[in-house]
């Protein structure tokens, strides 16, 4: 499971990532000294920063006080939980900051290490019809030999990556270029999807059919509102016609050592 389960861990690691000092008077209480970046992202006061910049002043980022325990009603601390606007705000900030990456596996910095290029794509498939359902694929593609792996994020979970290459490491260049890599990944996902149960789509079409019959019945009486009829029919189709949207949560180029590649491929066999 790659889901976030513990909100305390999440907050601790997120704010540490941005080097914001955290004070925790209790296990469930967080008093976070924001930096400018996060203040701008979370505190919703663009004018403040606008004027500070105009005055040539540094400005003082705020302290954010959060409480993760629904039972405690600590004064001055806002309750944060899955579904609270504050957490949603942090989520969407992260999602928007983490669309792309380029990472190198860390090595000891002494041995000469070749790094192999992988494309890692986290893909969201949305099944849209009467209702909505989502499925997430995490796919890794070896950009030299074309080997493809599923559950890639899980497999890479404990591998140390960094944004700069370690000393004495060097990269091999991809033979498969990332754009065509993405198409291979899409191809794979489409194949996967085609084996899925499609009763949801059939049910959607049936509802669409029913709604259209109802529409036809009522509009047979008043033909003079043709435009209205067409509009409504279009809306119905838009809403009910089953379709699948394949979108990218995030993706990146990952350079992995031969050793790691070996391990990954072993799990495949």
């Amino acid at each position: 499971m790659m889901e976030l389960e513990n909100i305390n861990h999440f907050l601790e690691s997120f704010f540490s990532l941005y080097d914001c000092p955290i004070d925790r008077p209790e296990k469930n209480l967080f008093s976070i000294q924001l930096n400018r970046e996060l203040d701008e992202a979370l505190m919703n006061r663009p004018f403040y920063w606008h004027y500070m910049d105009k005055l040539g002043q540094q400005g003082a980022p705020m302290t954010l006080k959060l409480n993760t325990d629904p039972e405690s009603e600590e004064k001055g601390f806002e309750w944060i939980h899955f579904g609270s606007p504050r957490l949603q705000q942090i989520f969407s900030y992260i999602q928007q900051q983490a669309m792309y990456t380029l990472l190198y596996e860390k090595s000891d910095g002494v041995t000469k290490t070749a790094l192999y290029p992988w494309l890692v794509g986290n893909i969201k498939v949305s099944y849209l019809g009467k209702q909505k359902k989502e499925e997430i694929f995490s796919i890794g593609l070896h950009l030299i030999n074309g080997i493809m792996l599923n559950n890639m994020m899980k497999k890479l979970e404990n591998i140390p990556f960094q944004r700069v290459m370690s000393d004495y490491s060097y990269t091999l260049s991809p033979i498969i270029k990332p754009p065509s890599g993405f198409y291979r990944i899409f191809q794979y996902i489409e194949n996967e999807i085609s084996t899925h149960d499609n009763s949801w789509a059939i049910a959607s079409l049936k509802t669409l059919q029913e709604e259209k019959e109802l529409l036809d019945y009522f509009f047979q009486h008043n033909k003079d509102v043709q435009e209205f009829y067409e509009n409504e029919e279009r809306h119905l189709t838009e809403r009910l016609e089953p379709k699948i949207e394949i979108s990218i949560i995030n993706a990146g180029l990952f350079y992995l050592s031969a050793q790691t590649v070996q391990k990954l491929i072993q799990t495949l066999q």
Partner: peptide, 19 residues
Amino acid sequence: LCSWELFQKSYQIAETMKV
């Protein structure tokens, strides 16, 4: 480009929030 940690977080969020 983002760090490995943030990249992982974003993926976890998507997993958590999916319908």
